[in-house]
Write a protein that binds this DNA or RNA. Sequence first.
DNA 1: CCAAAAAGTTAGTCTCAACTAAAATGCGGT
DNA 2: ACCGCATTTTAGTTGAGACTAACTTTTTGG
Lengths: 263, 263
Amino acid sequence: MAAAVRHDVVRNSDVKSRQSKSIDADGLTGPVEDYLKAIYELATRDGVAATSDVAHALGVAPASVTGMIRRLAAQGLLDYVRYRGVQLTPNGRRAALSTIRRHRVIETYLTRVLGYPWDRVHDEAERLEHAASDALVECMSAAMGHPTADPHGAPIPTRDGRVDEREHRSLAELPLGQRARMVLVSDKNAELLRYLADIALQPGTEVTVTNRAPFDGPITLLVGKKELMVGAPLASQVLVEPIVRAKSTAKKTSPSARKRTRG
Amino acid sequence: MAAAVRHDVVRNSDVKSRQSKSIDADGLTGPVEDYLKAIYELATRDGVAATSDVAHALGVAPASVTGMIRRLAAQGLLDYVRYRGVQLTPNGRRAALSTIRRHRVIETYLTRVLGYPWDRVHDEAERLEHAASDALVECMSAAMGHPTADPHGAPIPTRDGRVDEREHRSLAELPLGQRARMVLVSDKNAELLRYLADIALQPGTEVTVTNRAPFDGPITLLVGKKELMVGAPLASQVLVEPIVRAKSTAKKTSPSARKRTRG
DNA sequence: CCAAAAAGTTAGTCTCAACTAAAATGCGGT
DNA sequence: ACCGCATTTTAGTTGAGACTAACTTTTTGG
């Protein structure tokens, strides 16, 4: 090859910023992002997240959660009072929503564009969300015309951290005969998702509960034209929104379902 | 299968396999994959990889490399003789090529399908390669009709570990006046890639060296219809393949460029 | 209202993958 | 053949993030 030149432009990637642990987009590690996500979800439901709930959600020992919580509180991502549970600070919330946005955009992209199977997309996104940059996620989102919900119906937070936090009732609570539209199911249970795909029940599908056997017995559904029976555990996982006959222009769903789109 | 409820299906993701460190697709950690990739590249060039070269390639201290090499050798991924450098075993080679395949398919997908910028795709792929499953990578590859080279011209290994390992000569070595086609440039230097994009020199582009100033001085190129001058360091990074006038059907490139497609 | 159970925390240990400093080895030149 | 230098390895430390075992605090049921 040539002679002894090549000094400047060529030296590949010399000074490698020297960070020891693998940091992703937010400057947070993968595990940290997972904690923030889990705490976000628990605290949104219950106000504060309990140590053991976080531990269960992440599949780690409670003692590990206490340890991590201390670090995150010291970093200003959590408000923590010993023995009293934990909440996100504004910074923590921002970080959590950013991770959730990445997760959901990725899920949506993989199913919509690549045809990746519904029931496997969660595990894939669970790893990719820690590796994909925000720039890439924006690329994906733009390529789909900025969807607002993922394939399981979960709302996608915006870049500036707004997200639809409405709560929905499940098929287990839906009044008999009330027409409704499925809106959401957890993406975490692959078996459940496969079964729902089998019975053609997905976000957007219209469904009615026609009968409910006593003592949490089988629930009879009308999905499209087909009638079928499901158990109570499944029914409680499938969230729906009643279809309101548009009488007035006022878009009230129900007095109990408070609409709050926080940011 | 209506009746008797289904207590089984619903329990979310209870028993979480309990593995402590974050393992990806191959059952290897991110750092391990990075070492195998680096060793693959160095050992392919030089027979064995030297500790300090691996250290430099990964931006870590030589002592760290020795430590990791011991672990990988114990796992049967490397052949290691103290003070003598290191080589991949067949298993190590398989793992390295699998990671490289993921990297290059991802790079290609991001540029071709998502329009992700040429000079930033390497860093993105560097993180995604550890998170994307082989299944997803096959999806991407299929969506593009199974390309054989990434956007920088690097050959994409096949699933079964075959890869084109031909060596190419650089613009610095190309005889004056010889028409050639650019085939490859390293993806690691973003600045270089931006400049090449500027001058419209990419894999596939036809290029001729029309003059070379003495003492590694400026090199004059003909790219398309435009003439321009580049320095020796750049020229040595741009690899090309001479264009042979198809006289006979025999596809000989050059006696020195030995074609070996190992697997 | 108090004791037992449940939940949470502390203390101490482990592994991975990095580091620095010091010792060992290999090699080129005379 | 040997000296000096570059390369490599060993030894010992560090930090993140997990674990178990033991202890403390809160909650709950009688």
